[in-house]
């Protein structure tokens, strides 16, 4: 490329025409081209009547450049990450010293924020699903036991459950509806005393205790996650 072709390309580049990256790299390192870049813009400013007094311009760019030498190199990590992803190659900043990725902090913060949000949302969804599963399990096991108890009570005519449970089968249903799960468990255990042996009862009770503890823990987790997400 001749000198004139380079200058013509420079003129086109300053007017927004597309040029090759290699030319931009050359422009950055060629002081003569940089001086031309400045002069062409000076001409433009003068034609538009925007040229300030020369005494203000002389050496101004040079002074700013000197002041910039004290400044670190700022790298937009987010941009570079995107560029690397699209180009499928790592970015290679030219400056080797004094590099500060100011936006790296912002980038990581925003990334960690989004990760945090996704995690909490997943945790929330998982705990709700787990509660539903355990709830369904509890309900079905209760249903099964209730049916079993009803059938036993109906089949074993002559054996009254009243002296042990101190209430009739209807009373049991009533007490279930009014008093909640724990009461249900107690009542059913009392009812089942007639049909289950001690070991089975103990096993059943232990199983229930574990289930209740799991549900309690899940509910606590769920509350905690809810508070973190909604009241943060």
């Amino acid at each position: 490329m001749t000198e004139e072709q380079k200058l013509q390309m420079l003129s086109a580049f300053m007017d927004g025409q597309e040029v090759e990256q290699s030319f931009v790299d050359e422009l950055l390192s060629d002081e003569k081209l940089l001086a031309k870049w400045e002069e062409y813009h000076k001409i433009g400013a003068a034609i538009r009547g925007e040229l300030p007094n020369e005494e203000l311009i002389v050496g101004f760019a040079h002074r700013v450049e000197q002041a910039l030498e004290k400044e670190p190199v700022y790298i937009n990590v987010a941009l570079n990450a995107n560029e690397s992803a699209t180009n499928n190659k790592p970015s290679t900043p030219k400056e080797e010293n004094n590099i500060v990725s100011m936006s790296a902090f912002e980038f990581l913060r925003s990334k960690s924020k989004s990760i945090y949000h996704v995690t909490t949302q997943l945790a929330l969804a998982a705990s709700v699903a787990a509660i539903c599963v355990f709830g369904a399990q509890m309900y079905s096991s209760y249903k099964f036991e209730q049916d079993f108890t009803d059938k036993t009570a109906m089949n074993s005519t002559g054996i009254s459950i009243a002296p042990v449970a101190n209430h009739t089968n209807n009373d049991v249903v009533k007490s279930i509806n009014l008093n909640g799960n724990e009461q249900i468990a107690t009542d059913k255990v009392l009812l089942n005393e007639h049909t289950l042996d001690a070991a089975q009862l103990k096993k059943l009770e232990k199983q229930r205790t574990i289930e209740m503890q799991t549900i309690d823990a899940l509910l606590r987790d769920h509350e905690q996650v809810k508070q973190t997400v909604f009241y943060r």
């Binding site: 300053m14 931009v24 422009l27 950055l28 390192s29 940089l34 870049w37 400045e38 813009h41 760019a61 700013v64 450049e65 910039l68 400044e71 190199v73 700022y74 790298i75 937009n76 941009l79 570079n80 560029e83 970015s91 900043p93 030219k94 400056e95 590099i99």
Partner: peptide, 15 residues
Amino acid sequence: VQQGHKQAYNLLVRK
């Protein structure tokens, strides 16, 4: 400039 080519900023200063 955002990719670390600090010198490129001089183009904007001169412009």
